[in-house]
Design a protein around this nucleic acid. Sequence first.
RNA 1: CGGGGCGUAGCGCAGCCCGGUAGCGCACCUGGUUUGGGACCAGGUGGUCGUGAGUUCGAAUCCCACCGCCCCGACCA
Length: 575
Amino acid sequence: MRTSQLFISTKKEAPAEAELLSHKLMLRAGLIKRLGSGLYTWMPLGLRVLRKVEAVVRSEMNAAGAQELLMPAVQPKELWEETGRWDVFGPQMLKITDRHERQFCFGPTHEEVITDIARSELRSYKQLPANFYQVQTKFRDEIRPRFGVMRAREFMMKDAYSFHASFESLQQTYDVMYGAYSKVFTRLGLQFRAVAADTGAIGGSGSHEFHVLADAGEDLLAYCPTSDYAANVELAEAIMPDSPSALRAAATQAMTDVDTPKQTACADVAALLGVGVERTVKAIALVTVAGEFVLALLRGDHNLNEVKIAKLEGMADFRFASDDEIRAALLCPPGFIGPVGINADIRVIADLTVAAMSDFICGANKPKFHLSGVNFGRDLPEPHIVADIRNVVNGDVCPDGKGGVLELCRGIEVGHIFQLRTKYSEAMNCVFVTEQNTQQAMEMGCYGIGVSRIVAAAIEQNHDAKGIIWPAAMAPFSVAVVAVGYHKSEAVKAAADQLYAQLVAAGVDVLLDDRNERPGSMFADMELIGIPHRVTIGDKALAEGMVEYVARREGEMKKIALSEALAWIQAQTKI
RNA sequence: CGGGGCGUAGCGCAGCCCGGUAGCGCACCUGGUUUGGGACCAGGUGGUCGUGAGUUCGAAUCCCACCGCCCCGACCA
């Protein structure tokens, strides 16, 4: 394509709406345009990138034996009532009413629709396993859309669903899809990591997330550099070498009041006393769905893992207590609360680490006071529940027992695969006839890829001060031919047109910059847009039969003979 | 939904405190000079100042309400 034919809308300044680097660059390069909160138009140049990502995804899905179909974006309420998710999904689902007052949603996902298809089309074990996928627009009414297409409300997703006669078959396909996902992200040229994950609201058993590694990522990942262990911190287990009580040292100090007039945070109290923050214990006040007030105890430098604690008895859908609730239950304002001397019917949940501590420091349940030298069994009862309720931190022992130590990094979730088992098939009576002529619910798997999010994630990982640096597989164009003086020099025009024609004929995705612009503008545009390879044709070099080549990522200029330019570029762009 | 900030030309902003009929840079149009790293000169187009209702002789500016957007916390590809 020629730039004179391509709609290009590059900007020197990014709109004030953008915060994240990838978002700014996408706007500046004119890839996307915002219509409303979480709603983006893919402009021609951006759409080319999106299509490239889709192409890689489709090719690997097809290779993995999945078949493409396309389901409606709008889905009837009745289907969602069968699984009970019409209500469970809640406000995140965009609900629509038609002229007959019938209710629909704009699909946030398609388990219900595909299961409806499977139960009517797949009758016999002979038809299983089957794996269907689509690439489609989804809508989720996010609480807070942000970062452009990274967390948009309307977004492009590839979702696949597999159906099986047995769990073994599901596991086989799950492994195949795991491999296919790895190939997708490898082909896209992204640094990524697959991690064990929580199954969340979708339900089921096994699950892995695929993350593009980036500092701007919203997820924290724990991995072991010396083994293959990797998990989302939501899931990563904090283990101890022995039971907490066996590790606990004997008390050596008497419990004493400490005057802490302004110190409410553990780190401040520790600093005041001149001890490490790991000597302190913080109490977090929670309220269960049943209205029960609960105290969770964590070491001062640790953080509560909300996913882990929600899995404990009665703790599902807990919330943080309000200041008033804290005052009512403990007769003390937040900042000085602790587990000592509290009403005996307040349930105390201690993290494993806390249960192993002795002579610790905690809030005194008196304004402006903390306690030091506190010990379980002596100064307060043993906690009602001892469990792993914290996020792992750098340096924690790796839970796979191979002796490694965990490290943390950030990632952007771009893929998620689940073993759904029979949650949906049972709810929707999606059964098949077995070899023994019995009826059985199908085992199911589901596999998502955030196609539009990948574009933003790729930019987070591949950019510099000048703009985007596309990985080869998703670049809107592989090569930019910049003709300096196209409208002035017959020689330049002839050489540029010829090389362009040769590249097009050779099947190379080439963009000829034939605008009557100053070279600086053309270079800056091609760099901002992130085209991986650039050939510059200008009078000076051309007089010697040469053209100039620059790789976007390296930035070093090489002179090559015009006659060899085609072969040179073909060699560079071979994927 | 709670907390913070912002809505003035396509984009980035000033003007607002102290009311007097809207300005700068980029972009865009015309002419000319330029042409290897976002050119220069001259002229020009484009704004119901988010919306509505008030106060006032007069409102971008003051008051009230609403709407939208962004950032920080609870959702997920």
